[in-house]
């Protein structure tokens, strides 16, 4: 038995971590945040070259056919870097296309693998479609509530500016198209995959914010000593660490449940999103409190990680929504 990604997946995630540290450090994030487009030039292509975008795409379309347990470790790294790229959306979109098969899969999946296409998907309880303004292909419900796929210019995309400048959220309006490319496709399973993918990012974000706070607590001196020597600081950080340490195996288990389509898949995915959200929000609050004044500025990097935590908390179902989803399964 193993409750962690395989060693190969961990090694691969390690290489992604290095790639992101190189191409998408805090300075690059700042540039993207200030840029109208909001993305880091060149990163998407590099992720494709590294094999990240093809990870979950079946081999017949040029990908490597890995499941969510393999992606998990990469998604933690993407969270750690607060990367402003539409990775989860594209992964879930590609899952839907691969399951649908046919012309649409043949047309789009090789382009996803090559880093030439971004997909945005509208699944789950929310009305906003993340990454829609960046997308080449939209997978969203039409007026009749039927899930359809179309190039972005065939829909009306109305962007709403987010406090997190590293995402693009939009309402997408699609007239009824009289049929779906996704008949018989397991939409719930794809939604759960997205939920777990976001949960994995949240655990990475929490780790990054705790690292920042610990670094700060080891350097910042008050009353003649580093503040990290105070129990009032230590105990907050210990509690935030524990919350995230206990969320991580819940997220890992959920990736297995999605990959194997276990009977508990939805419950496990929702448990993961709830635990990871609560832990990441706690890490964000703790990191802010430990940084104190400097953390409450736009100049310090922490706010970009905090705001990514807020958006990922809200998207793909809030913690409360997921908790109730677990409650329905457990309590009826």
């Amino acid at each position: 038995m193993r409750l962690a990604p395989d060693q190969d997946a961990l090694d691969f995630a390690g290489s992604v971590r290095e790639l992101l540290a190189d191409l998408a450090d805090a300075a690059a994030l700042r540039v993207a945040w200030d840029d109208a487009d909001g993305r880091i030039p060149g990163v998407w292509k590099r992720l494709a070259e590294a094999g990240v975008l093809g990870l979950s795409v079946p081999e017949e379309y040029g990908g490597s056919g890995a499941d969510l347990t393999t992606l998990l470790a990469v998604l933690v790294e993407v969270g750690r870097s607060a990367l402003p790229e539409p990775l989860v959306e594209t992964i879930v979109g590609a899952m839907l296309l691969a399951e649908a098969g046919g012309v649409i899969a043949e047309d789009w999946l090789p382009r996803v693998v090559a880093g030439e296409a971004v997909i945005a998907v509208g699944l789950g309880p929310g009305a906003l479609v993340s990454a829609a303004p960046w997308a080449d292909l939209l997978v969203v419900a039409d007026h009749a509530g039927v899930l359809c796929a179309m190039p972005r210019d065939e829909a009306t995309v109305t962007t709403s500016e987010s406090v997190d400048r590293g995402v693009r959220l939009a309402a997408v309006d699609v007239p009824s198209r009289g049929g779906s490319a996704f008949d018989g496709v397991h939409l719930d399973r794809a939604f759960d995959a997205g939920v777990v993918a976001v949960a994995a990012q949240l655990t990475g974000l929490a780790e990054a914010m705790l690292d920042m706070a610990v670094r700060h607590a080891k350097q910042r001196e008050q009353f003649g000593v580093v503040i990290g020597s105070f129990q009032a600081i230590k105990h907050q950080l210990a509690d935030a660490y524990v919350a995230n340490a206990f969320a991580a195996p819940v997220v890992a288990r959920a990736s297995w449940s999605v990959a194997r389509d276990a009977p508990t898949r939805s419950r496990d995915a929702s448990h993961a999103k709830h635990a990871a959200t609560v832990a990441a929000r706690r890490a964000a609050r703790t990191a802010l409190q430990v940084h104190a004044g400097i953390g409450y500025t736009f100049e310090h990097d922490l706010h970009m990680w905090m705001k990514r935590t807020w958006t990922l908390s809200s998207l793909w179902g809030t913690a409360a929504w997921h908790k109730e989803r677990v409650a329905k399964e457990v309590l009826g």
């Binding site: 038995m1 340490a245 206990f246 195996p249 890992a252 709830h274 635990a275 908790k323 677990v326 409650a327």
Partner: peptide, 21 residues
């Protein structure tokens, strides 16, 4: 109630993961 149930489940997973490590 559901929080307690989830936490017991999380504890089981954490201990399992640590034992496997």
């Amino acid at each position: 109630v559901v929080q307690a149930w989830m936490d017991a489940d999380a504890y089981r997973l954490y201990v399992l993961g640590t034992a496997l490590k």
